[in-house]
């Protein structure tokens, strides 16, 4: 007989159409169907959602904070990716 704990699931909820799904939290469920039902009861009791995604936590691959330097810092000085890098005369509107 199985004595395993119910796996952990991450819950993403779209609060209304037009918005992205956002991470709301996690919960335990035996499978995806149950995770959806539990998410509905746990995270949308106050009308917070129109759509739910569930992902078993173990399927999420996360970047390692120890690599933050090489992953994210190189983007810090690429100012030319931002509009403010470029000089445009004040009289030019709507650009």
């Amino acid at each position: 007989m199985s004595t395993k704990n119910w796996p952990l699931w991450e819950i993403f909820v779209r609060s209304k159409n037009g918005l992205e799904h956002r991470h709301f939290g996690s919960l335990h469920a035996t499978d995806a169907d149950m995770a959806l039902e539990n998410a509905r009861d746990v995270y949308t009791r106050r009308n917070e959602g129109v759509s739910i995604w569930v992902v078993e936590s173990k399927h999420i691959t996360a970047s390692n904070p120890e690599n933050s330097g090489e992953l994210f810092e190189p983007a810090q000085d690429k100012v030319y990716r931002h509009p403010t890098f470029y000089d445009v005369p004040d009289e030019v509107k709507h650009m």
């Binding site: 007989m1 199985s2 004595t3 395993k4 119910w6 035996t30 499978d31 149950m34």
Partner: peptide, 13 residues
């Protein structure tokens, strides 16, 4: 109850 739900999910899978 928890064990049964887990066993059922495993069978289904």
């Amino acid at each position: 109850v928890r064990d049964a739900a887990m066993a059922y999910a495993e069978k289904k899978q």
